[in-house]
Design a protein around this nucleic acid. Structure first.
Lengths: 345, 345
DNA sequence: TTGTACGCGTTATCAG
DNA sequence: CTGATAACGCGTACAA
C-alpha cells in the first residue's frame, strides 16, 4: 500500500527551513540573492521532504505550460515510431513534456483527443492529420494554438506550417526505374483513396508513365482493410491477362499482404512480379528477396517540425511555411527486369 | 500567424451569459439544479467563446489529476507498441490522459522522466522498468504514487503490483520441443545479461535440458548491441565443432540479426539450424521459413495493468500483487527436426 | 536581504 | 435556485 501522503508544497519547505515562501522560490529558481546559509537550509529541506514542485500550479501561474501534444494515427508503423522517438528526444532537450495521443485514423476521436490537449493548455501541437482534419484544424486555429502539421499534407491549408515528405519524386523515381527495366504495367496498391498523398501519387504515376512514351500501362489496386478480402482481390487481379508486372505498395502493411498473397498464388518475386514499398519497414532486409523501399526521412521531418514549432511558440515564426523533405529510394532484390517469357498458365 | 488570444475562462463565460461563475460551473458539471433559461444562456456563451476549461486549474483544485504516466524503454518493439495502444484505448475510456515517456534503457533518463511526471501530479504510473530501477521505484514509493510495474519483473520488489509475462513456461516449452526434435545443443541469444528475465530464462533452460536426461548441451550467446560486432561473434560461434543446432532469440531485434547472419554464413534454416524468438515481431510470417514465436499477450497484460492501476487509484486495491500472464508458443517453419547428417564442411 | 499579499481558473460551501 | 468567496500551489511585485 503506497502511503498516499499529500505531496509537499513550497510552504512546507519554507516552514521546515524556517524561511518564507518567497525565499524558497528564489533559491529554487536561483533568482534574487539569498544568503548562503538560508539557501543551504532550504536545499536540505527540499531534499528531506522530496519536494518536486507542481507543474500544474506553475503552468497556471505562468499562463503557459510546457506540454506539447503529438497526435498520430497509431504507433504501429515504423515511421510513426521513429517520429515519436525523435520528437521525444528533442522535447526532452528543450524541457518540454511530449504527450502522445492516438487518433486511430478516426476524425471523431482525433477531435476529442485534441480538445483535451487544448484543455490541458498545451503550449503547442504536432499533428499527423486524419482523413477529415477540418474540424480539428478549425478548432486549434480558433484556440490560437501553435501547431505544425507533419507527415501528411492537408491541401489548401495555409493557416499552419506543414512539414512532409516529398512523395512525388519518390514515385517518379520508382516508376522511371520500372519502365527502364521494361515493365509494361505498373500497379499502385493503395488503402486510402481519399488521402491527398494517394491522389498525388496517382497523378505522379500517370504523368511518369505517359511521359515515358513507352506505351506502358498503369492501374490502381484498392486493397481495402482486411487481409482476407484482399487475398480475393489480388487473386482476381492476377487472373486478368492484363495483369501488372510490378506493384508499388503505399505502406508496409500492404507490402506484407502482397508478399503473402504472391506466395499463396505461386507468384515469384522478382521473376514474375517486382515489388516496391513507399516506406521502409524494419523487416525490409529480412525477407527474400530483399524489399525495395522508399526511405522516409522521419527523423529529419521530426527535427524540422520541432524547430518550427518552438519558433512559433516563441513567436519567432512568420508566415506559415510548407516544407517537403526528400526521401531516398533504395532498390534491392525485389525489383528486377521484366521477363517477357514470364510463366503464365 | 495563429491569433494568440487568451483562452476564455469561466468568468468570461459568466460575464457574457450574465450569471455568476458558480452557476456556470454548475451548468457545466450539471451538478445543482439550474433554471432552464440560464442554462441555455450559459451553453450559448460557452459555444460562442469556444470555452474548453482548464485541466490545470481543475487538477489543482481537485488535488488530483487525470494524467497517467506510461514509461517504456522505447516504442520500436512490437510489444511496447501494442502495449501503448491498449493502454491508450483503456485510458480514453476511463477519461484519463495517458502520457507516454521513453526511458531508452537508461536509468538516469528514466529517473528524470518520472520526476517530471510526479511534478505534473500524475494520478498513477505504469512502468516498464529499466535495468536499474531502484532509485525510480524508491522515488515513486516516497511520493506515494499509485504504480504498476509491467512487462519486466523486478525481483524482491513487494511495494508495487507487478504484471508480467510468465517467461518460464515459454522457454520450457520451446526447449522441450527442441529436445524432442533431437537437438543436442540449444543456444540462448541474449542482449541484457543482468536483466532478471534473462536470468530466469537461463535457469529455466538449464533446468529443462538437464531434466530431460538426453545429454544435450545448452549455452548462452551474448550478442551485444551492434549488428556488425554480432556478425563476428556469430561467425566464430559457428566455426566451433560444438556449435548449436538451435537458437532461441530473446527479442525480435536479435531474431533479425540472426536471420541475416545465418544467411551471410550460408547456414540454412531450419535444415542446419532451428530458430525461435521469444516475442512475435509483425514480420514473423513474412520471412522464409516462417518464424516460430512465443507470442506475448501484450493486450492482456495492458488490460490487467490498467485494471490494477485504477483500483489502486481508487483505493480499492489491497496488498500489492504479482500476476503472470501465460504466453503462447507458435511453432512455424523455422523449427525442424535435428538432422544428424547436417552439412558441415 | 527577507517577508507579505495577490492572482492564475476552478469548485465547494455557505449565505441569501 | 443563485451569487459571493475561500482554497488549491506557485511566482512575483512590493513593502519592510
Amino acid at each position: 500500500m503506497s502511503k498516499s501522503r499529500k505531496p509537499p508544497t513550497i510552504s512546507d519547505v519554507a516552514k521546515l527551513a524556517g524561511v518564507s515562501v518567497g525565499t524558497v522560490s528564489n533559491v529554487l529558481n536561483n533568482r534574487a540573492s539569498v544568503s548562503a546559509g538560508r539557501a543551504r537550509r532550504v536545499m536540505r529541506a527540499v531534499r528531506e521532504l522530496g519536494f518536486t514542485g507542481s507543474m500544474l500550479a506553475k503552468g497556471m501561474r505562468a499562463q503557459h505550460n510546457t506540454l506539447i501534444g503529438l497526435c498520430v494515427p497509431n504507433t504501429g508503423f515504423a515511421n510513426f515510431a521513429s517520429l515519436a522517438d525523435t520528437l521525444d528526444e528533442l522535447s526532452v532537450a528543450d524541457n518540454f513534456e511530449l504527450i502522445q495521443v492516438f487518433s486511430r485514423y478516426d476524425a471523431e476521436r482525433e477531435l476529442a483527443r485534441i480538445r483535451r490537449l487544448i484543455a490541458y493548455k498545451a503550449a503547442g501541437l504536432l499533428i499527423v492529420p486524419s482523413l477529415q482534419p477540418q474540424r480539428v484544424l478549425d478548432l486549434v486555429y480558433e484556440a490560437g494554438l501553435p501547431t505544425v502539421i507533419i507527415n501528411r499534407m492537408v491541401p489548401n491549408e495555409t493557416r499552419f506550417d506543414q512539414i512532409a515528405l516529398d512523395h512525388e519524386t519518390g514515385i517518379v523515381e520508382v516508376a522511371s526505374r520500372l519502365l527502364e527495366l521494361g515493365h509494361k504495367h505498373i500497379a499502385l496498391a493503395i488503402q486510402y483513396p481519399q488521402l491527398s498523398v494517394t491522389q498525388q501519387r496517382i497523378s505522379s504515376l500517370t504523368w511518369t508513365v505517359e511521359a515515358s512514351g513507352k506505351g506502358a500501362k498503369w492501374s490502381v489496386l484498392e486493397c481495402g482493410f482486411e487481409s482476407e478480402t484482399f487475398e480475393n482481390t489480388f487473386a482476381e487481379t492476377m487472373r486478368s491477362p492484363e495483369r501488372p508486372t510490378a506493384i508499388i505498395a503505399s505502406n508496409d502493411l500492404l507490402a506484407s499482404w502482397l508478399i503473402r498473397a504472391m506466395h499463396n498464388n505461386g507468384i515469384q518475386c522478382p521473376k514474375d512480379m517486382s515489388l516496391v514499398v513507399l516506406e521502409e519497414p524494419d523487416w525490409a532486409e529480412l525477407v527474400y528477396p530483399k524489399l525495395s523501399c522508399f526511405q522516409q526521412p522521419a527523423r529529419e521531418i521530426g527535427r524540422l517540425a520541432w524547430d518550427k514549432l518552438t519558433q512559433r511558440i516563441n513567436g519567432e515564426a512568420g508566415e506559415p511555411v510548407t516544407l517537403r523533405c526528400a526521401g531516398k529510394m533504395v532498390f534491392r532484390g525485389s525489383v528486377a527486369e521484366y521477363n517477357k517469357s514470364t510463366t503464365s498458365e
